[in-house]
Amino acid sequence: MAIVLGPNRYGKAETRVVRVVREGGTHHIKDINVSSALSGDMEAVHLTGDNANVLPTDTQKNTAYAFAKKYGVDEIEDFALLLARHFVDSQPAIHHARVEIEEYFWDRIPVAEGPDLGLRDEQHSFVRSGREVRTCVVHYDQDGGTSVVSGLKDLVVLNSTGSEFHGYIEDEYTTLKPTSDRILATEVSAQWRHRGDDSSSGRSGTGSFGRSYTEARQALLDAFADTHSLSLQQTLYEMGRRVLNARKEICEVRMAMPNKHHFLVDLEPFGMDNDNEVFFAADRPYGLIEGSVLTDDAPDAGYAWN
């Protein structure tokens, strides 16, 4: 029996980069979390400890900082592509780079009216936004093959009506009661894959990655709000379908949506009715619905989702 080295990669995880752009007294910030992973001709380092082909993870971290200064940080997909191409194209032993970025949003604190402004007339004060986290994963190969997967996570949404659940399998262990009016709440994690020709160009086909993200996010929200749901699975499919119709450069959407259960509280012991007014929000256990929606001409995913 022979023992051989299998697939492997290494990198620097979660390099936090905050880039401040100053336009006079008005500042803009970009807050991102960068993780890079490299693979290629790495047999020697694993088998004999020869580090000749290893670009240190500390160097990967420093590159993220240096590129943030040198090139700035606009759309996270473009910054990830910049890093991935640099790692592969500058190092012959590195054949593949994976760069994942999360972006955290900040809102500007509004300037108040009145005489006690202090420095508040200068736009440099922010509060961390309660919005979702924007994400992307970029892969780049030595032969130029590129994939871009954009997305978001922690997008919490709720419909207070317009959701039903009934007609499901009932066996001797079933206690859940059918309902024709329930709260539907979830925390959306969604990723969408750009077509290969759009990814390699560094753009999102019919516009910038920023516009693509904004419209895909809005499509998710619109579909969630517009769909009279008979199941969370039905809602998931409609959300994915709406994104694909809205943005033609996107060929596949994958989602994970926990069912954030809201149970009607029994108020009869207190002599009160409860006509879908008071609920208990349970955090666990929860149903977890996952699925993908794609176009019938979607190219092979390759390593895009890895």
Rank of each mutant, 00 (worst) to 15 (best):
D198P: 05
V73M: 04
L38N: 03
K12P: 03
W305K: 07
Y71D: 07
A301N: 08
I32V: 15
L152M: 11
T295P: 03
D297A: 09
M1E: 07
S229I: 09
F270I: 02
D273P: 09
D143K: 06
K177V: 12
G207S: 02
S200H: 03
T63C: 03
T26C: 07
D143T: 00
T214D: 13
L236C: 02
Q218C: 00
V138P: 09
D89Q: 13
S200P: 00
D181F: 06
A216S: 15
T295K: 15
L221E: 11
L81T: 01
L117H: 10
T295G: 14
E23H: 14
R134N: 02
D121C: 07
N53F: 09
E172P: 07
P56L: 05
G207C: 04
K260E: 02
L117K: 15
A219K: 10
Y104Q: 11
T186E: 06
H27P: 02
G207P: 02
E122W: 09
G291R: 10
D171L: 06
V21F: 08
T206H: 13
A13T: 10
D116P: 01
V148L: 02
Y10H: 00
S35I: 01
E23K: 14
T59C: 14
P269E: 03
C136N: 02
Q218S: 09
R9E: 10
Y104P: 04
Q142Y: 12
V148R: 00
A301F: 09
K177H: 12
D107A: 11
S204Y: 07
V265E: 11
R211C: 00
R16N: 06
E290D: 05
H27A: 10
S201C: 05
A282T: 09
A225S: 13
V133E: 04
I183Q: 10
V17T: 07
I76G: 01
L267Y: 12
A190G: 02
L158V: 14
R98K: 15
G202A: 10
E14F: 10
D300Q: 12
P285R: 14
R19G: 00
V138E: 03
A185P: 07
D197Y: 12
D171W: 08
E164C: 08
D89H: 05
H46R: 05
G130V: 04
Y10K: 07
A93S: 15
T63D: 04
L294W: 12
R22W: 00
A37D: 01
G24Q: 04
Y65K: 11
E75P: 02
L236P: 04
L220T: 04
G287I: 13
L264T: 13
A97Y: 01
H27I: 03
Y168V: 05
L117R: 15
D143M: 04
T161D: 13
T161R: 14
G151D: 01
W106P: 07
D31P: 06
L176W: 13
K153Q: 14
